[in-house]
Structures are given as C-alpha cells and as structure tokens.
Design a protein around this nucleic acid. Structure first.
Lengths: 192, 192
DNA sequence: CCATAATTTGACCACCAGTCCAGTTGAGGA
DNA sequence: TCCTCAACTGGACTGGTGGTCAAATTATGG
C-alpha cells in the first residue's frame, strides 16, 4: 500500500524535529511537571500555535515522542534476532522484552510521566495495543491456563513511570530491574 | 500519648465534612479530570479559600479522603481477625490484603486517580509507607530470598487507578481481580 | 514567476491552583 | 451574660496553563 498520501513541507518537518528535540531536552532538565507547551515552543524557536497545529495537543506531542522512542524496540521485537525477536522460546522472549522495555522507561522516565499525565485514558491508546498484544500472545503460549490478555496489562503496569522514577532517585534502579525481572520470571516459569 | 493538641471549631468540622462529602460526590459524578477546587467549594457551600485553609492543596484534600477510606482496612490489617489480621499464614494474609485493597480501589477509582494526579511523588507519601511495610514484611516471611521491599512496591503498582478504571469501564472488573489475585498467588506460592 | 494551499504567528480565551487580608464567628474566661 | 481573641471564612486577585483562531507568511508545483 502507499505511504503517506502527502509529504510534509520542508519547514514543517524541520520544526517538527526542533519541537520534539526541545521537548526531550526540557523534560530532562526540568522534569515532567515543569514543562509547558509555551516553554517548548520558545526553546524550539517557534510559536505556541505551531506546536498545536503540528501535534494537536500536549498529549499528542508526548505521544509522538513516545512512539519515536519505542520504534526501535518495536522493530526488534517484530523482526529482530532472538531472544527479543521471533525464534526464541516464548518465556525467553517475554523476559527479554521486559528487560528491554524497562531500560526504555528508565532512559525516558520524565517523558513517560509527562505522557501519562497528559493522556486521558492510556489503556485505549493505539500505541499500547501492540505491546499488550505481544505480551498476551507470549503469555498465552507459556501459560494457556491463564487470562493472558488481562495479565499482560497487569504485568505492564509494573513499568509505571512513577515507580521507576522513585527507584532511580533513590539509587535503586538495578534492584527494581531485578524485582520486575523476577516477577515476570515467576509468571513465565510454570509452577505446576 | 495525647490526642490532637487542639480541637477543631464546630463550624470548621462541619465544613470539613461537607467538603469531603462534596468532593466524593463530584468525583463520582464527573470523574477525576473534571473536578476543580472551585466546584468542590461551591458544592460544599463554602468558598475556595476555606478549602485551601483546611486542606492546604488539592493534593491535601485528596490525601485526606484517601486516608479516610483506607482507615477501616488499615485497622482490619493491624488488629482485625484473620486472614486479613494477624494469625493467619503470611501467604494467606497477603492474598487477603490484595483482594481487599483491590475492592477499595474499585470502589474509589476516581478518587485514586485524582489523588495520583494531584500528588507529586506518590512513593514518598506517608500513607503508602504503611502498606509497603505490611506487604514487604509478609513477603520477607514467605520468600526470604526475594527483595521484599522493592517487590512490595512492584506488586502494589498493580492496583494502579488507570488500570482498574479501564477494566471497570469495559466490564472486566472480575477478570482483573482474578488476574491480580493469580499474580500475587504465583509469588506467594513457592515454586522451588 | 505565479497561484495556492500549507504553515506560522501571537493575541486571545476560559479555566485552574493557590494567595492574601479584611471581615466574621465560635468558644472559653471573667 | 458579655467580652476577647484566635480561628475561621469570603472572595477578589495572581500567575500560569492548554487550547483556539483569523490573518499574514511562505514553500512548492506548475
């Protein structure tokens, strides 16, 4: 099928990048709670109107950044080498996914928090559908007895931005990584 | 030790109740995202200044409501009959706690979401310390090999307001209850 | 070089959490 | 009973937010 029906004008594309980069920089510098669209616009060298014209809303801006950051992981899961990609046993793929996703969240905590705060109902977001589907299908394979669909959401809620941020701030990032890894492992490892 | 050093004036106490009740009603009617302090004040028949004088901030108001709602469960855990209270095996107490806490969240979803949104760093809140401590001590008893402190936080993040609300809205409350119960069970049941 | 549609601007809006102080009121002591 | 004063209350005010919009500008294909 065709790609995008219409190209983006060159200045528009340039501004889109500038806005995304500025957002990321400001989030890292001031934290999710202290970044407004006006600030972003100023830092990107455009006006507030441009940001809204491009991304629709604050939620849209954050969503765009999240999608961008998750793109590589998505590709790796869908067509990359095992254990992340197809080929490895489901349990290993599941663990690899959670490990990698955890790093993604750690590297973009403020973004994740800003995204959550700006988004009304995160669980209906299209982005999440892919992850839920991926996890659920692996879980269904590992433990056909379980309610894989819901369990996927429950396990993913573990990668909560606030939880991760707290452990980063208290220097317990690796402890948290271990705990989540262990939890997923205890689900992926059949007890009976 | 003494109780509160000074009593609250009668009108103040009456207004406190009116504000708390109004908040609860508005949350139930309009949802966490559509309730402002001004609305609360109007519904309670007081002015905005009074609300802030009494509760300090929006976060303080939500915190007060959460504390109130959690009070009964706290008492039951600390001195009530088993399996919630002391006396039952740790694994049973843990499961009973999660079941009960889940109901608490379900019955107060909008409040939980409003509380989360208004609170800057939930993980440093005094309220949570008690729950984390309770869960961690049970976990430490059940699985001395695990990192009980962090695992407690991870498991509790599962009772996330957004996750619960989504399942309520889609009529999957019991499925979610089952999934969380199963997850806690698989941790509380030693696999080795 | 022109026509046109996409893009950009910045003033504008409604709303919100939180502040502040002047005025009111309840409660205990004389 | 009344008086005093601390506690409480009202409501105007501030600073800042996400979001809108019509008019001006500019890139681009022909």
């Amino acid at each position: 099928m065709g790609n995008e029906p219409k190209r983006e004008r060159r200045d528009a594309a340039r501004n889109r990048r500038a806005i995304l980069d500025a957002t990321d920089a400001l989030l890292a510098e001031f934290g999710a709670d202290n970044v407004s669209i006006e600030q972003v616009a100023a830092a990107a060298g455009v006006s507030k109107g441009t940001v809204f014209h491009r991304f629709g809303s604050k939620a849209g801006l954050m969503r765009a950044l999240v999608v961008e950051r998750a793109h590589a992981l998505r590709d790796a899961v869908v067509g990359g080498p095992p254990p992340l990609g197809p080929g490895a046993p489901a349990a290993e793929r599941l663990l690899a996914y959670f490990d990698e996703m955890f790093r993604l969240v750690v590297d973009n905590v403020e973004l994740m928090i800003a995204y959550d705060k700006a988004t009304d109902d995160p669980h209906t977001e299209a982005i999440h559908a892919f992850w839920y589907g991926h996890i659920a299908s692996l879980l269904a394979e590992i433990r056909p007895d379980s309610d894989a669909e819901v369990l996927a959401r429950v396990l993913l809620s573990t990668l909560n931005g606030d939880l991760v941020l707290h452990h980063i701030r208290t220097g317990q990032t690796e402890r948290l990584a271990g705990a989540i890894h262990g939890l997923v492992e205890s689900v992926a490892t059949r007890p009976d």
